[in-house]
């Protein structure tokens, strides 16, 4: 983040949360892919936990519109802020926070788990979508290309795939086998379950952005139909995580739907 961006965030902080905040994401039904959907859902969960109102605006070019070229992003007045971490920071600037009662040890603990989810679950989702041939051919090409006309859809799929593969290569995920990916996910869920330790949320006092992020990823993995259901089956082995996901869904999403 450049200095200018930081200053603009600081300045934006002084204004209250505007009423017409728009939440931009790709089309949920026909376009969005597993990792993007997880991040969008996590951010929505966070905003709901903070009880901040927003309007969802699905756009086919949401990714290109985002200042970081990643979904989701919000538009609050003059400010455009992308991704969960940026939005959390922006919301904190307005004096709204979910991590007030945490001491600095717990905060850094929370950040460590969040980066674990980004570096394991998100990578595994990217791997399944773009590297695994079966999923790529059956699901990813159709969905990612759905918003482009022929022959741009094929070109765009190829470009995006090579971008993702480049990213996975630098992070050492491309050369992994499917079994390695699954075992990474298992280890990740294992450690999350240990941290949760039967509590309602990861921290005693209530939900935090970590809960939002875990909910976003696990809920998406559990509910997205894919040719390979292995990922969902792994997650199902961790009942306390499933309970957390159900709890958050009931508390923040079902309630909103009923209203």
């Amino acid at each position: 983040m450049t200095l200018v961006d930081k200053i603009s965030l600081e300045l934006g902080a002084q204004e209250p949360w505007p009423k017409d905040v728009k939440f931009f994401q790709p089309h949920e039904v026909e376009q969005v892919l597993l990792p993007d959907n997880a991040n969008c859902l996590a951010t929505q969960a966070f905003l709901k936990m903070c009880q901040l109102p927003y309007i969802v605006e699905p756009r086919p070019n949401a990714e290109a519109m985002s200042p970081t070229l990643k979904v989701p992003f919000i538009k609050a007045g003059r400010f455009v802020i992308a991704e969960l971490e940026g939005i959390v920071q922006f919301v904190n600037g307005k004096g709204i926070t979910l991590t007030e009662p945490l001491d600095s040890d717990q905060k850094s603990n929370m950040r460590a788990y969040m980066s674990l989810i980004h570096s394991v679950l998100e990578m595994a989702e990217l791997y399944i979508c773009w590297v695994d041939d079966e999923t790529y051919n059956e699901v990813t090409t159709a969905r990612n290309g759905s918003v482009y006309p022929w022959p741009l859809n094929h070109i765009q799929n190829r470009n995006k795939r090579s971008q993702v593969i480049k990213k996975l290569k630098t992070l050492g995920w491309y050369n992994k086998k499917l079994e390695d990916v699954y075992s990474e996910v298992e280890t990740c869920c294992e450690s999350l379950q240990t941290r949760l330790d039967g509590k309602r949320f990861f921290f005693e006092h209530g939900p935090t952005e970590l809960d939002a992020l875990v909910f976003g990823h696990l809920f998406t993995i559990l509910t997205t139909p894919l040719p390979r259901s292995d990922l969902a089956n792994i997650v199902r082995n961790y009942p306390s995580l499933i309970d957390l996901v159900k709890r958050i869904e009931k508390e923040y999403f079902k309630k909103a739907a009923q209203q």
């Binding site: 200018v4 961006d5 603009s8 070019n61 290109a64 519109m65 200042p67 455009v80 741009l152």
Partner: peptide, 24 residues
């Protein structure tokens, strides 16, 4: 032709930002 339109800076107007992306 395939055109990839993107904003020049973070401060670009939202009306320009919403036009970002690919078109054929």
């Amino acid at each position: 032709n395939i055109r990839d339109l993107s904003t020049l800076s973070r401060n670009a107007s939202f009306d320009v930002r919403k036009e970002s992306g690919l078109s054929l």
